[in-house]
């Protein structure tokens, strides 16, 4: 059992949780993820490691309540326990194992979409701790969905915000802002690291390919075990089939077959919607004092 020692609401339906898991905290690196099972009947839900504290033995995750399982998870409170918490899974980000002098020579741009800001934060901090300034774009649908703004601002070189509805920062999507920075403001980047919804990563990769910026994306396909045992997470990268959980989750964004990945992500949509309806139905009945 893994205790939730702290829970915070970051935005509507987006929660941050610190979970006690000393073994995971001890080994975690930027770019890796965990799998969480809420209770006996729960599914294995992959979530990016957003932060870790080896002294306290905690791992921070940020969960966006989307469907059945994530809704169940965010309903847990401080002091309660998740049944299972396993990790760290996947490979750490490539720069972690590269020659620091080489890394220092490059100019990095991070692009975070929605809840993607959470996994971007520890990566940006990793650079900051090594005296490297990186630029960061955080985008969301609207102002209240921008998360971790202050934390990221503290460790980033420049932080730029974009909202689809123009309620805060740049008026438009992150791709519009990248174009503005590079084409209009003449900024130069060697590497772009994009983390967010699959569809956002697809369009960022299309744009950066045109702009000639090497791009890394963090893929989030459907997963079961997360250890290379089932192949549910397979993605096509450069015409080769890869298992995102062990070969990734980070890949060269210009080589990923996003259209296939998007289709694969929707594989269980029908089942999930049915399940969600059923649960909501039961909730209503319960409130009316009907079924237990």
């Amino acid at each position: 059992m893994y205790k939730i020692v702290e829970k915070k609401e970051l935005a509507p339906d987006i929660y941050s949780m610190d979970v006690l898991a000393p073994r995971v905290a001890e080994s975690a690196k930027p770019g890796q993820f965990v799998i969480v099972i809420a209770d006996e009947s729960g599914e294995r839900v992959p979530l990016t490691i957003c932060d870790y504290d080896t002294e306290k033995g905690t791992v921070n995750i940020v969960i966006q309540a989307m469907g059945c399982s994530t809704k169940k998870m965010v309903s847990y409170n401080e002091g309660e326990y998740f049944k299972d918490f396993v990790g760290p899974l996947g490979k750490p980000s490539a720069y972690v194992n590269e020659d620091l002098e080489e890394v220092k020579k490059r100019k990095y741009l991070f692009v975070a979409g929605g809840v993607g800001a959470a996994p971007v934060f520890p990566q940006v901090r990793w650079f900051h701790e090594r005296g490297i300034d990186v630029d960061v774009i955080v985008g969301a649908k609207t102002k209240e969905l921008i998360i971790l703004e202050d934390k990221i601002r503290d460790v980033a070189g420049n932080l730029y915000i974009a909202t689809d509805d123009g309620s805060y920062g740049f008026n438009g999507m992150v791709t519009g802002l990248i174009e503005d920075l590079v084409v209009n403001q003449g900024k130069k980047y060697d590497y772009c690291i994009a983390i967010g919804p699959m569809i956002m990563m697809k369009f960022v990769a299309l744009l950066t390919e045109k702009l000639g910026i090497k791009t890394i994306v963090s893929l989030n396909p459907i997963m079961v075990d997360g250890t290379g045992m089932c192949g549910a997470c397979r993605v096509t990268v450069g015409n080769e089939t890869k298992f995102a959980c062990v070969d990734g989750p980070e890949f060269d964004g210009h080589l990923v077959d996003f259209d296939e990945a998007l289709k694969r992500q929707a594989q269980y949509k029908e089942e999930e919607i049915k399940k969600l309806k059923k649960v909501e139905e039961e909730c209503k009945l319960e409130q009316q004092g009907g079924v237990k």
Binding site: C230, R264, A266
Partner: peptide, 19 residues
């Protein structure tokens, strides 16, 4: 082979047995 509806036996069985 990466079409929706193609599974490894491991995935299919794990979903059913373990999960």
């Amino acid at each position: 082979e990466n079409l929706n509806g193609v599974y490894s036996a491991n995935e299919f069985l794990t979903r059913n047995n373990l999960m």
